[in-house]
């Protein structure tokens, strides 16, 4: 059965804005994005909201719903009571463009700073061989839909604009870990993970893992192992000696 939902939506632009109240009819089984679309179609045609698939697969409709970083398309109205007011505000870690849309270009800049995959040559038949258990760790990280909710929640940058130049954020630690764990990669990016991406600034509070809509164990499976790998390379005297006597792996350090 339908019911009138009370919503407070942030409206404004770079110069400022405010929460605006809306009441909209909603139906059983709907999600927050449905309600916002109905506001758009019937009350505020120019309400800015970014979305694509509406199925939790593209990671476009990220916002803060009652203060929590979530996808609007995967937040069901049935998680709230009929009397509850749902407040939707734009991601706080990024500059507002308009209404619920933010400028997430920071993430695209960081993506460009990360050196690409560089595989070993293929086998004689032109194919590459990897065992399923060896690709599974990387596959977990590649489930990432780039919703940037982890970036938005990470307190290193959330209220610290000044950290952004030196810090790539959890999404890209995933990527460093993925490449470091790739069975066929020939590059060693551990030094870069520390110096360029700033993985040392992360103090593993696991906020990123909590908000990941793909349930990727960002902290436990990517960041902590990557921190250990970085540390291994830098401080372990045995490893250090080992690298002097016999190269530990054949990768090229970047």
């Amino acid at each position: 059965m339908g019911y009138p939902l009370s919503m407070r939506l942030w409206r404004g632009d770079r110069d400022g804005g405010a929460l605006q109240d809306f009441t909209v009819e909603v139906e059983e089984g709907e999600v927050v994005l449905d309600a916002i679309h109905r506001v758009q179609a019937t009350q505020a045609g120019d309400l800015a909201v970014r979305w694509n698939c509406k199925a939790g697969k593209c990671g476009s409709c990220s916002a803060e719903i009652n203060g929590r970083s979530r996808l609007m398309c995967m937040t069901r109205l049935s998680d709230f009571g009929h009397e509850d007011v749902i407040t939707v505000t734009p991601l706080r870690a990024f500059p507002v463009v308009r209404d619920l849309v933010t400028d997430v270009s920071y993430n695209y800049v960081k993506a460009r700073e990360l050196p690409a995959f560089a595989p070993t040559p293929p086998d004689a038949d032109g194919k590459r061989r990897m065992m399923q258990q060896d690709v599974e760790r990387g596959q977990e990280f590649r489930k990432c839909i780039e919703c940037f909710l982890c970036q938005n929640t990470c307190h290193v940058i959330r209220d610290h604009e000044e950290n952004k130049p030196a810090f790539a954020g959890p999404r890209f630690f995933l990527r460093y870990a993925e490449l470091d764990m790739h069975p066929l990669d020939t590059h060693d990016r551990r030094e870069l993970a520390q110096s360029a991406a700033g993985i040392g600034l992360c103090n593993i509070t696991k906020c990123c893992t909590e908000v990941c809509p793909e349930n990727i164990k960002i902290t436990d499976n990517a960041i902590i192992p990557m921190k250990e790998r970085v540390v291994d390379r830098k401080y372990d005297p045995l490893v250090w000696l080992g690298t002097k006597i016999r190269r530990r792996d054949d990768r090229t350090e970047l």
């Binding site: 690409a116 995959f117 595989p119 590459r128 990897m130 065992m131 690709v135 990387g138 596959q139 590649r142």
Partner: peptide
């Protein structure tokens, strides 16, 4: 195969 060369991790 080219996708794999560029980093895709297919099931094996």
């Amino acid at each position: 195969l080219e996708l794999e060369e560029w980093g895709a991790l297919f099931d094996r």
